[in-house]
Write a protein that binds this DNA or RNA. Structure first.
Length: 259
DNA sequence: ATGGTAGACCTTCTA
């Protein structure tokens, strides 16, 4: 069982690139972020033709997340609980009805820049809500995965030039502490656990030749509950996707689980 | 040196 996460930076602008990767990697489950479209404009048919069930939580222009699975998707939840005022489409969850069912939450954590604004407060509030939700899921003692664009650089080793990120919301002590608080609930981070390179980058900005200079950061992660971590066998960062035609600025990260 | 690019969409916001 392969579960992927990928911030595609507009599913419609990226459709050919994303389909090409799906035909190559054939993930069983995929969490997509930054769809940048409403549900009605998500290109369902090409994914259904590849054998995927499709659940979306879209939004006009910004954000938007999708959960795709070759197995049926049950108990779908749209939106992160804990704030009825929050209208941003950044979370979708469902139970993958595979022979050994696994709950999968796909998330697009707020960027939070610039620091010192309401955007940064929103990021930290969203992370606390995610921590509470994860704690509730842990109490169920099920296998689950929380995969997505966390918009947090966990450690200095997760950036090519950490000093250049010191003033950025992705590398603030508060952001990193909230990320560790999530981990300290008892979750296992897949790439750190079994990745060939635990610090392989997952994002390179479009600007200033960041890809060509390998000015990358590691911000796309998969957190696993203990029963899911017991099944984890591998975690691969698909770096080559950044060199495709019309690439996203993020690359897919894929975790493998024993069936 | 405060740059640079990409996407949605209509003038600027987000990243």
């Amino acid at each position: 069982m392969q579960i992927a996460t990928w911030n595609v930076n507009s599913i419609n602008a990226r459709l050919e690139t994303v389909l090409a990767w799906f035909q190559l990697a054939k993930p069983d489950v995929a969490c997509l972020q930054e769809l940048k479209c409403i549900d009605e404009k998500f290109p369902r048919e090409p994914f259904e033709s590849l054998g995927y069930n499709v659940e979306t939580h879209g939004q006009k222009t910004y954000n938007g997340v999708a959960l795709l699975s070759k197995f049926p998707i049950e108990d779908v939840r749209r939106g992160l609980p804990g704030d009825d005022e929050d209208l941003q489409a950044r979370y979708i969850e469902g139970v993958i009805a595979s022979p050994r069912p696994i709950r999968v939450g796909g998330l697009y954590l707020p960027n939070g820049n610039p620091i010192g604004t309401d955007k940064f407060a929103y990021k930290l509030g969203w992370m606390e809500r995610l921590r509470r939700h994860a704690a509730g899921l842990l109490a169920l003692e099920e296998a689950f995965v929380l995969a997505g664009d966390y918009n947090v650089i966990p450690e200095p080793e997760d950036a090519d030039n950490p000093a250049s990120w010191l003033g950025d919301a992705l590398f603030q002590p508060e952001s990193r502490a909230a990320w560790r608080a999530l981990k300290h609930l008892g979750l296992t981070e897949a790439q750190a656990e079994v990745g060939e390179d635990p610090h392989a980058y997952t994002f390179w900005d479009y600007q200033a030749g960041a890809w060509q200079r390998n000015h990358g950061i590691r911000i796309d992660h998969l957190f696993l509950s203990p029963p899911a971590a017991e099944r984890l066998t591998a975690c691969v960062v698909h770096r080559d996707a950044r060199a495709m035609e019309k690439p996203s600025d993020h690359v897919p990260v894929v975790a493998n689980f024993a069936d």
